[in-house]
Amino acid sequence: MKKLKGIMLIDDDDTNNFLNQRLLNRMQITEKIKEFRNGKQAFDFLYNISAGHYEVTSPEYFKPALILLDINMPVMNGFEFLSLFEKLDADFRKDIVLALLSTSEHSQDTERAAASKIAYITKPLTTQKVQDLLDAHFQNQEA
């Protein structure tokens, strides 16, 4: 399987980011993983990339193929991030897969995710869950 261009982990829980990054690293599905502590940090990053405001040569800047998004976060939560993300250029967004990653099994949250047509994964993230997601969204990209 071809490796993903990059993954963004957006979660205010440091340890959760650490564990997810460890899991993804061990699965060896990408070279680039970047962590963000809330929706605003992540959106600023994405916005700069979409607008071309970045150093092309810098390994710190990359356009992600997958974004794993927590719901409850300070400053800007997952759904607020989502509504801003949907305002970005459609061409820019079309090859980015978004998945909500949350402890909440509340129907209010799952219904909202379904309304936005994005994947909803309950924590903890496991190899199996990541694999299911990849199978669902990245099958076609295999070279």
């Binding site: 340890t15 959760n16 564990l19 409850n72 402890t103 924590k123 903890p124």
Partner: peptide, 16 residues
């Protein structure tokens, strides 16, 4: 809800 996250973290760390 808020305790779930840390508990899952502990489980994840134990596994690690």
């Amino acid at each position: 809800r808020d305790l779930k996250g840390p508990v899952l973290n502990v489980a994840g760390l134990v596994e690690a």
